[in-house]
């Protein structure tokens, strides 16, 4: 095994891949791979930040647990991706999470969108979980062993997230008149941000065999959504796509508030450990 594709992971009890293992491995990605890992990590981090808000506010205790679990999985993925990305520039996961400015983040606009009501959160979950599921399913074959190992753990978890979202789409769409109205509204508000997820750019094109080309995931996404919506008696809305730009650091207005809240304490005490 050559140096460049040596696994950053070691086998820990229960085969769990922990961010600490990645940190200990010292495997250093190239700047381009680091950039790519940032995108994956930032999506997971901002989504976790949004979902974490629901804990203690969900419509049912079981959903406090479920949304909490999903947020926790996403934080785990974010920690792994950011730890690995950070190695490219000698930074830690926390340096990246807490001490980057807005335009240095690489998250997609979709995950920055407000939680709204439960239906809107579920609509966002449906889109992101299907996208992440298809993405990680392919990333397990990446020539970069660390990305592949993170994806191998994440894909199993994201499969549950997808199942959770799909079940709720059916319940809400086919439940009561009110839930159906809200589900349709949630989808309508979410759909402008779908397109950005599937855009290719120079970075992913240059990482052939390492990164998954977003455009290659679109067909599977559309087929899965279409099948689900047909069962849920929903339609894919015909709404104009938002411009996007998150991968280049051009974000929605929401991200500034998300970061202000997330980073406030860490920035009040620069250099402190917790």
């Amino acid at each position: 095994m050559s140096e460049s594709n040596a696994s950053a992971t070691r086998i820990t009890p229960g085969n769990a891949l922990r961010p600490e293992d990645i940190a200990a491995s010292g495997v250093k990605p190239t700047g381009a791979v680091g950039e790519y890992a940032l995108r994956l990590g930032d999506d997971a981090l901002i989504l976790a930040q949004r979902l974490g808000w629901w804990i203690s506010r969900a419509p049912e205790l079981e959903e406090d647990v479920a949304l909490g679990n999903i947020a926790l999985d996403q934080i785990g993925h974010a920690r792994s991706f950011l730890t690995y990305a950070g190695h490219a520039w000698d930074k830690t996961e926390d340096d990246l999470a807490y001490f980057r400015g807005e335009d240095e983040f690489r998250s997609a606009h979709l995950v920055e969108q407000p939680n709204g009501d439960f239906a809107r959160t579920i609509a966002r979950q449906l889109v992101i979980s299907q996208y992440q599921y298809d993405l990680y399913s392919r990333l397990v074959n990446s020539a970069d062993a660390t990305l592949a190992a993170i994806a191998a753990k994440a894909v199993k978890e994201v499969d549950y997230h997808r199942d959770h979202a799909r079940q709720w789409v059916l319940r809400l769409a086919l439940g009561t008149d009110e839930s159906r109205r809200r589900m349709i509204e949630g989808i309508l508000l979410t759909w402008p941000y779908v397109g950005e997820l599937f855009e290719d750019d120079e970075l992913v094109t240059s990482l052939d065999g390492v990164a998954v080309k977003p455009s290659s995931l679109r067909a599977s996404f559309d087929a899965e959504i279409e099948a689900l919506f047909s069962e849920a008696e929903l339609e894919v809305p015909d709404v104009p796509a938002s411009v996007g730009g998150g991968r280049q650091g051009r974000h929605s207005e929401h991200l500034g508030y998300i970061l202000a809240e997330m980073q406030v304490l860490a920035r009040e005490h620069p250099g402190a450990t917790w």
Binding site: G52, W53, I55, L72, R79, M262
Partner: peptide, 11 residues
Amino acid sequence: ITRAPSLKRKA
């Protein structure tokens, strides 16, 4: 949760 000062603490 949203203001935890490190990702590990947040988790």
